[in-house]
Amino acid sequence: MNKKIARYIQDHEDDLLEAWMHEMKKRESERGPNSVSNEMYYNTSKEFISIIVSNVLDSNDKYTKKMGSFAENIVRLGWPLTFITTGLQVLSTIVYERMIEEKELSAEQINEMLIGFDNWMMPISNKMIEIYSETWEKTVSLQKIALQELSAPLIPVFEKISIMPLVGTIDTERARLIMENLLTGVVKHRADVVLIDITGVPVVDTMVAHHIIQAADAVRLVGARCMLVGIRPEIAQTIVNLGINLSQVTTTSTLRKGIEKALEFTNRKIVSLEGMR
């Protein structure tokens, strides 16, 4: 039965593809991709049909390789898994109905064909879900690593002065990364002053302040001074209300003021060119 279905799909590929895309376009606004060009949509759908046929006509290794490549492509395009599984069900229904229409079958034969279609579709659906999930987890893991690498960079801006701009929330894992990058960067860049810029941190609570104090203490232990810049009025009020002690950390309201202080700490200052005439 599986080979009959695969051969039928091959022989009527263009008509089936047209009917399938027409049906899937109706579902596009609900759960499918709505920013993909018609050409990309057509090519991806055609590839999907080729893979479905490959399940029967090719070796298992070749079929798995094709399915893996397809899964990577649709994950990159942002197509949800529900849209893909629905697509398989719709295609199966279209092929089944057309095969039934072309033959005069008894009730028993129709029931046998229905069972055959279920046996054909389930392994394909399960394989797609398995490979899609693995590909998605791999993609998310790689993105997480990339974001972690960018989430706490220590940037040297002047000789002996470095800045760590922080954006977003700070959890325990990120706080650990901040600490590691600070200590590694201070030694690497031979920094005497490090500015932690929290302008982009939406909330500073007790936990966040505790992590910042720990980072400042660690920086002092390796012979550098730590400054906290970007203290907005609402953040300052929160820190006071929580009774957080930042007396050991130099603070400023803006990054510019922080850089000016950092230059003073290293016996330098910003001089206007007009003042030098």
Results as ranks from 00 to 15, higher is better:
Glu47Gln: 11
Ile115Ala: 10
Arg225Glu: 15
Val208Gln: 08
Met227Tyr: 08
Ser29Lys: 15
Thr251Leu: 06
Gln148Asp: 15
Asn245Trp: 06
Asn111Ser: 15
Phe48Pro: 00
His210Phe: 09
Val140Arg: 06
Glu47Ser: 09
Pro233Ala: 04
Gly223Asn: 12
Thr251Tyr: 04
Asn119Gln: 14
Ile84Arg: 04
Asp61Pro: 06
Asn38Glu: 10
Trp20Gln: 03
Arg277Gln: 11
Met21Lys: 05
Asn111Pro: 10
Leu177Val: 12
Glu23Met: 09
Lys103Phe: 13
Lys46Glu: 08
Leu221Pro: 13
Glu13Gln: 13
Phe48Asn: 04
Met122Asn: 14
Arg174Trp: 01
Glu108Lys: 15
Val167Tyr: 08
Met227Pro: 04
Gly275His: 03
Glu13Ser: 13
Pro80Thr: 01
Gln89Ser: 09
Ile129Lys: 13
Trp136Asp: 03
Gln148Cys: 03
Pro80Ser: 00
Ser133Val: 01
Glu104Asp: 14
Lys138Trp: 00
Arg174Thr: 05
Asp192Ser: 12
Thr172Lys: 08
Lys257Gly: 09
Met24Ile: 07
Gln10Leu: 10
Lys62Arg: 14
Glu274Pro: 00
Asn2Phe: 13
Ala218Tyr: 10
Met24Tyr: 05
Arg98Pro: 07
Ala215Lys: 08
Tyr42Cys: 04
Ala218Leu: 12
Glu23Thr: 04
Phe158Trp: 07
Lys4Pro: 00
Arg256Gly: 01
Met67His: 06
Leu273Phe: 07
Tyr132Gln: 01
Met164Trp: 03
Arg176Met: 02
Trp120Pro: 05
His211Ala: 10
Ala152Glu: 06
Ile270Arg: 03
Ile145Val: 14
Gly230Gln: 01
Tyr63Val: 13
Ser125Tyr: 10
Asn34Tyr: 09
Glu28Arg: 13
Val90His: 06
Tyr42Met: 10
Ile212Pro: 08
Gln109Arg: 15
Ser272Pro: 00
Asn241Cys: 00
Ser92Thr: 12
Val208Arg: 08
Met99Glu: 11
